[in-house]
């Protein structure tokens, strides 16, 4: 199939970027979106041009490294999947595809389509863990966990931290990411002792990074490759409110 591409090219974080048009004449519908970009880069390298920089690692939807904003959709038109799981058969012959980086103040562009998501790492460092050494897997029945909570915690823990929620949000808010990271610990007994400090610290760091505020628009949930529920944002809000009320107590 023939594909026209409009790709965001930007030398570095401070440079002014622009769209550059490319054309590929023989793309297999069975190739993945990233393979199509690999082919483009092969062409560019052979022509001594600068290849398009984009992030990727596992290419099987589990690491959260890839992330492109394709035709107005974070991770492209396919619901519930990462960019690396998108195939060219999702497009039509002759289509023009516009590819942009995640755009958020908190995610500065490194080069072209690659953005710096270390803001997420700093949020995790601020409280997204439990301080005890959990050791090896404990005896399964020692610590009873309500089945529904285990399921919800697991769903929240499927977050791969790709940043699609921020990319899709009209306010570039990170609340789905932070809500998921808070929820998967808050729902389990191991997360309880530090739950209050965790939510206060992580929300604090999220604000410091310059993410926007959630307006309950829910495009994050619609675009999340793991289809994580905005119920996790509600849980974070409730936890934050509770922790705030208690935090003054001596």
């Amino acid at each position: 199939m023939k594909i026209k591409l409009k790709i965001w090219r930007q030398e570095n974080a401070t440079a002014k970027g622009k769209f550059v048009k490319y054309q590929l004449d023989d793309v297999s519908p069975d190739s993945s979106f990233l393979e199509m970009l690999d082919e483009l880069n092969q062409d560019l390298i052979q022509k001594d041009d600068d290849p398009v920089v984009f992030d990727h690692d596992c290419r099987e939807g589990i690491c959260g490294t890839c992330g492109l904003y394709i035709n107005g959709r974070a991770h492209g038109p396919q619901k519930g999947s990462a960019t690396c799981q998108l195939h060219m058969r999702s497009f039509k012959d002759g289509d023009t595809i516009t590819v942009e980086p995640w755009r958020a103040k908190a995610f500065p562009v490194i080069k072209d389509l690659m953005v710096d998501r270390s803001a997420f790492d700093r949020i995790m460092v601020s409280g997204g863990y439990i301080s005890i050494n959990a050791g090896s897997a404990p005896e399964a029945n020692n610590m009873p966990v309500r089945k529904e909570n285990a399921d919800m915690a697991f769903d929240a823990a499927t977050c791969i931290g790709c940043g699609a929620c921020v990319a899709a949000c009209p306010n570039a808010s990170a609340m789905l990411f932070v809500g998921a990271k808070i929820s998967h610990l808050a729902l389990l007994p191991q997360g309880q002792p530090e739950a209050e400090e965790r939510v206060l610290e992580m929300v604090n760091q999220m604000d410091l990074e310059g993410f926007g505020n959630c307006s309950n628009n829910y495009s994050c949930e619609a675009e999340c490759p793991k289809e994580i529920s905005v119920g996790n944002i509600a849980r974070m809000n409730a936890q934050f409110f509770g922790a705030k009320l208690k935090s003054g107590k001596k």
């Binding site: 035709n71 107005g72 103040k105 808010s173 628009n217 829910y218 495009s219």
Partner: peptide, 18 residues
């Protein structure tokens, strides 16, 4: 604050269900 959180806008506006 929400405007400031996205200083550079997308050229294709968001088409997600919202």
């Amino acid at each position: 604050q929400n405007w400031m959180a996205r200083p550079n806008r997308y050229s294709v506006s968001n088409k997600a269900y919202t």
